[in-house]
Amino acid sequence: MPTMRSVIVLQILSVLIGLSCSLNPRDPNVCILWESFTTSVKESYQHPYDQVTDEPCADPRTSYRCLHHRITYKTAYRQAVKTDYRKRYQCCPGFYESRDKCVPRCTKECVHGRCVAPDRCQCEGGWRGDDCSSGMTFPLPHSRHSVCSSLSLTQTQLTFTKKKQEEEQDEEVEEEEEEERNKQRHEMKQFSSSSRDCT
């Protein structure tokens, strides 16, 4: 039966492994941060003490005994604080962590588009501007034929935009499902590795 101390140590190790493996170091948007931490260690040192001995006095004419003092050293132990450093992965500036990935952060919401780089939106068809909130402007028609052509063009753009949105939604759903499967396989692999270490 494992002791309570070993169980706590295993839990701490599992948490540390999870933190260290949450981000992929090969991701170009992941940066390395060195952080310091302290631990309590037991160190040895030479402790001086006064050794007193009862010896005959230096004067041979007396039979008295005298006390002699001598400083000697013994090895002793004490608790000390040790500072060490460890490597931690975090998202680079302009990115934030979402589902174990570093995704770009846009200060303004991409109203009709998506954030593809820090403070950079990719607008959907028919939209423009820094936050994709401005619609495309078309010249005013001058005849009935041009009105019909303009309406047909607008309808075509709306259909294309709707189809593109559906395709992007399907791609996002597939990516989320693939991420979930990869995460489950990663957790199973960590659990198997932890089980082998315990045995």
Rank of each mutant, 00 (worst) to 15 (best):
M1F: 11
M1L: 09
P2K: 09
T3P: 04
R5Q: 11
S6Q: 15
V7M: 05
V7F: 05
I8H: 10
Q11T: 11
I12N: 01
L13I: 14
S14N: 10
S14L: 13
V15K: 04
V15D: 07
G18H: 00
G18Y: 01
S20F: 01
C21G: 07
C21L: 08
S22C: 04
N24D: 09
R26D: 05
P28K: 02
P28D: 01
I32S: 05
I32M: 10
I32V: 14
W34A: 03
W34M: 01
S36V: 02
F37I: 12
T39I: 10
V41F: 08
K42Y: 07
S44D: 10
Q46D: 14
H47P: 01
Y49C: 08
Y49L: 03
Q51G: 05
V52D: 07
T53C: 06
T53E: 14
P56G: 10
P56C: 14
C57E: 13
A58G: 12
P60W: 02
R61I: 06
R61F: 04
T62S: 15
T62F: 00
R65P: 00
R65T: 12
C66S: 05
T75P: 05
T75L: 06
Y77S: 11
K82V: 11
R86W: 04
R86Y: 07
Y89R: 11
C91D: 13
C92P: 05
E97P: 09
S98H: 08
D100V: 02
K101P: 05
R105S: 12
R105F: 11
R105M: 05
R105Y: 15
C106H: 03
T107K: 00
T107N: 01
K108L: 09
C110F: 09
H112V: 14
C115E: 00
V116P: 08
V116K: 12
A117D: 14
R120V: 10
Q122M: 13
C123N: 10
E124C: 04
G125Y: 01
G126L: 03
G126H: 01
W127N: 00
W127V: 05
W127H: 02
G129Y: 01
D131S: 07
S133P: 00
S134I: 11
G135T: 00
G135M: 15
G135P: 01
M136Q: 13
P141G: 01
S143T: 15
S143Y: 07
R144Q: 06
R144D: 03
H145T: 06
H145L: 12
S146F: 08
S146L: 08
L153K: 00
T154N: 05
T154K: 07
T156H: 06
T156M: 15
Q157F: 13
L158W: 02
F160C: 02
T161K: 10
T161S: 14
K162Q: 15
K162S: 09
K163G: 14
K164H: 07
K164Y: 09
E167D: 12
E168V: 13
D170G: 09
E174V: 08
E176C: 03
E178F: 13
E179N: 06
E180L: 07
N182T: 06
K183G: 06
Q184Y: 15
M188V: 00
K189W: 14
K189C: 12
Q190R: 10
F191M: 11
S193T: 07
S195V: 12
R196N: 04
